[in-house]
């Protein structure tokens, strides 16, 4: 299990500055004749946690994929500190997907593999693997096949793997959706800690409480449009948009 008294300091510091602001200009993504992302104009300049919220099918996961460069926009563009995404920037990003993708290897080998792809070798690699397993509370499972872990354990492993890469931008797609409340809180501490170490966190969540605890600013997405973008305090106390208000009240927004 996760060790609640585990020290939450990560390893190493960030030397490269964050590629901020992130500017989305008329960002559009079409699939099957449908505008999944419909001309989003947005500037994210907070170097802390940005939360993306919105109902199912709003386009949150697609937006993260676009930001991470996994898919190319149909129209519009994304600028990172004034320049387009390039391999050097991508290498400093990491993503935790909505559905955990784990290799058919042991828990430790999953982390080790990812580090190997980033060219991290030798003692540093084993040290980071050990650190990641400690953060995920999975030390005893180091040799367990990753795919026999429980859903929540798999999510924690995916997050630990992403953190072990020491990215400067971290995308998370509902990383606590199958975690028990205690584990979710620990993940939140990990994310706050990551942010304090200078990692830009972009988090998709449906958990309003979590968003309130973590967010510096919130983007509300609906039908592929960013209908609201505010700092967290005003977003939660005084949402401008009727749909946002309904969503936060727990009402159905369609």
């Amino acid at each position: 299990m996760l060790d609640p008294v585990a020290k939450l300091q990560g390893i190493g510091g960030r030397t490269v500055g964050l590629p901020l602001p992130i500017e989305l200009k008329r960002l559009t993504f079409e699939r099957g004749g449908k505008r999944v992302i419909d001309g989003i104009d947005l500037v994210i300049d907070s170097n802390r946690v940005t939360v993306i919220m919105g109902p199912n099918g709003a386009g949150k996961s697609v937006l993260l994929r676009l930001l991470h460069g996994l898919i190319a926009p149909t129209a519009g563009r994304i600028m990172w500190a004034g320049r387009p995404l390039d391999p050097a920037l991508t290498r400093r990003q990491a993503m935790v997907f909505q559905r955990p993708v784990l290799l058919r290897r042991s828990v430790a080998a999953n982390v080790s593999h990812a580090l190997g792809l980033r060219g991290i070798k030798g003692p540093e690699r084993s040290q980071r693997v050990a650190e990641a397993l400690r953060l995920a509370g999975l030390e005893e499972h180091a040799a367990t096949p990753a795919r026999v872990l429980s859903g929540g354990e798999q999510q924690r492993l995916c997050l630990a793997r992403a953190l072990s890469l020491e990215p400067n931008v971290l995308f998370l797609d509902e990383p606590t959706s199958s975690l028990d409340p205690a584990s979710a809180l620990l993940i939140e501490r990990l994310l706050l800690d990551a942010q304090r170490r200078g990692i830009k966190v972009i988090l998709v969540t449906h958990d309003v409480g979590q968003a309130q605890r973590l967010a510096d600013d919130v983007v509300f997405l609906m039908h592929g449009r960013a209908i609201e973008h505010q700092n967290a305090e005003s977003f939660f106390t005084n949402p401008l948009n009727e749909s946002t208000r309904a969503y936060l009240r727990g009402g159905l927004v369609l």
Binding site: H68, L70, T90, A94, M95, F97, V101, L103
Partner: peptide, 11 residues
Amino acid sequence: EYDEQLRSLGA
């Protein structure tokens, strides 16, 4: 199954 994860990791 792995495509996006591996691309995300920069393989």
